[in-house]
Write a protein that binds this DNA or RNA. Sequence first.
DNA 1: ATGTAC
Length: 371
Amino acid sequence: MRPLATRTPYHIFASNVEEAALRQFESALQQPFTLRGALMPDAHSGYALPIGAVVATAGVVVPAWVGYDIGCGLCALPTSFSRTAVQQVAGALFKALYQSIPVGFAHNRADTPWPAAASLPASPFLRQLFGQGGLRQLGSLGSGNHFIEIGHDENDRVWIIVHSGSRALGHAVASHYMRLASPDGKPREGHFGFNVSQRNGRNYLQDLAFCLAFALENRRELARRVETVISRHCHGAGDWSRLINRNHNHAEYAHNLWIHRKGATQAEAGMAGVIPGNMRDGSFIVRGKGHPAALWSSAHGAGRALGRQQARRTLSLADFTTSMQGVVARIEAATLDEAPAAYKDIHQVMAQQHDLVEIVAWVRPILNIKG
DNA sequence: ATGTAC
């Protein structure tokens, strides 16, 4: 890979990165407030900054470097359900889950209670947005790469894995602050940020924290609903004391840096994490190694091998069906862009980041829910 | 990514 035109220290953990993504990363590193950068093995181009990029600044927060789905991430809940019992009723669970969980653009008919929201700090702008149906979206999945997986590890432990984010709320918050940060008042490509000590910067960070809490509560609610549905058919429960939660779209102050992660998972030394592969190969439960050159991060998934349109054009439904043998899932033209073949090989991606995370368990899917 | 787009 070509060297980047910058004196800012950076490290690329991917074997080959498309030129468009490289240019985005390079231009982020060229910003005067940027101190360090890293590209994870799943990096590919996104808005303003590649997905799979981590960029650290001195006192500046850039909303476009967090992206639209603030707080998007994964929860993994180990359970005491029996693998064979779950497998026997997988078809029924699949149907019941789509009845109890809104997916795609759908939301709940009624609000999901979230009492803690009232005492969380938030700007008046966010309060107003949140008041307009925020709670109806708690416990809704969304679309794209968001999913719910029920799977089992090597010891036959059943896991509930949820990938979702802050839904319309985070999107509106991101758009608002990206518009505020950009000099021409339009949300667009560019590396426009706020000083963290100024009003806009403080408001953004406060609303970002709210969205992170909302996204976590959304994933918890989704996992609760999955647990409830399974327990109507099988004995057992989730071990909520061992719930793992990791964001991959966020900004935080750590190690004396303002670290932005856009499609990159926090991986401090000893920290539990979840890295999804694809709807056939499942997800990995990991433990972070706290690699400083990776800015204490890892990949957030396999990364796309094919763009969504390209996947829809070039992949066949027949091959998709064959590749999904043994997994109960939406296998149809509408989900072809999420077929395993649309993603990079997750095992290779895991191998490329053995200095960043250690694999604790491999959760292989029994069923998968997508929007 | 998004009760869907300059």
